[in-house]
């Protein structure tokens, strides 16, 4: 019995000594176990996938242990609020500020409340589709039809990335046919499956989707009730051009480019067409030591200089897109201001 207790004591002491010892091994500001919370609660989605790619690369580069936790938007912000010691980061995409612009609950102004960090990848897949037998052959057809008084229902998930393209369409109708923009109506649904279902049920004329999720539907024979057709991919050609030539599934990059700006034009202002890149970036606690952000700048620069992570991203249809924190913040704020304009224009 005595032996046992002393054994336990030894084990416990060893543990207590070992635990801190292994977290303060050297003086790099990023070490030990780092948790990356993401603004999505799905491990099958693009946020998880992109974040895992970058987390693996970071683990290797920094000899630390990065782990991605798909906690969802509100829990991710809570976790970030709480931990200022540089052991918890967040990764999210444009939804983070779009949610705020659209006035969604639970979305604060990230530029004010947090430190916005490095961008690292783009998912160029955000798209709008119609059913294969739809009368609309192009985005312009949709805009014209709405302009001439036809009611067009667009299935989206309200309040963010899924809505921004719809807002742009509506804005384009407003510019070309002032006063007619309300002929374009949002059908508020949630997941991709319910957007597809809305089309099958005849409740929606146009749906928001993605190259990844809907590509196979576009290759179905026309007599299949599930068959769809791309109308518009919101990423611009200059983004899509960087994808692998093989494109996605059996649709080549060249085919995809037909649906993107400048081949498809949705006007944002008199001088500019609308386009939208869904960018993934880091978000940090505001009180966190700036050395950590600098170290991440450094580590990510090296990772992207090595070039391996870019290949892995392209294989999974992501576009590598690294910006250091300061530059990234500038870029995203600019982007936010642009979109704020069209969102406000629609509201009036």
């Amino acid at each position: 019995m005595k032996k046992l207790i002393s054994g336990v004591r030894v084990a416990l002491c060893a543990l207590c000594v070992a635990a801190p010892a292994y977290s303060f091994a050297d003086d790099s500001p990023i070490q030990g176990n780092i948790r990356i919370v993401i603004g999505s609660s799905s491990t099958g989605g693009d946020t998880y996938q992109a974040t895992s790619l970058i987390a693996d690369a970071l683990s290797e580069k920094l000899e630390a242990n990065f782990k991605v936790d798909a906690v969802g938007v509100s829990a991710a912000y809570r976790a970030l609020d709480r931990v200022r010691n540089g052991r918890t980061f967040m990764v999210f995409h444009d939804q983070s500020y779009l949610g705020n612009l659209y006035g969604q609950r639970g979305y604060d102004d990230i530029f004010e409340k947090y430190t916005v960090g490095q961008t690292f990848a783009i998912n160029p897949g955000n798209a709008y589709l119609v059913s294969k037998d739809s009368p609309y052959q192009s985005m312009q057809d949709v805009i014209d039809a709405a302009g001439h008084g036809e009611n067009i229902r667009v299935a989206i998930q309200p309040g963010g990335v899924s809505e921004i393209g719809y807002t742009a369409m509506k804005n384009a109708v407003r510019m070309q046919y002032p006063g007619q923009e309300n002929n374009l109506q949002a059908l508020n649904t949630g997941s991709q499956s319910s957007k597809n279902q809305a089309m099958f049920d005849g409740l929606a004329d146009v749906i928001n989707g993605s190259v990844q999720a809907n590509e196979q539907y576009t290759r179905l024979p026309a007599d299949d009730q599930k068959a769809m057709r791309f109308l518009w991919i919101t990423a611009p050609a200059k983004t899509l051009e960087q994808a692998n030539e093989s494109g996605m599934g059996k649709t080549s990059r060249a085919q995809l480019l037909n649906y993107a700006e400048p081949n498809v034009n949705v006007a944002m202002s008199d001088q500019q067409n609308f386009s939208f890149d869904k960018e993934f970036f880091f978000i940090y606690n505001k009180q966190m030591d700036p050395k950590v952000v600098a170290a991440m700048d450094q580590a990510l620069s090296e990772i992207f200089a090595d070039g391996q992570v870019q290949e892995k991203m392209k294989q999974s249809f992501f576009i590598p897109n690294f910006r250091k924190a300061a530059e990234s913040r500038e870029h995203l704020m600019q982007k936010r201001d642009q979109y704020r304009e069209i969102i406000d224009a629609i509201k009036q």
């Binding site: 491990t43 099958g44 179905l220």
Partner: peptide
């Protein structure tokens, strides 16, 4: 829903033609 991640991690999409 988690299983779908295994396909995407391998760069494969599931869909009506899979």
């Amino acid at each position: 829903a988690v299983l779908i991640g295994a396909f995407t991690l391998q760069g494969l999409q599931v869909g009506p033609l899979f």
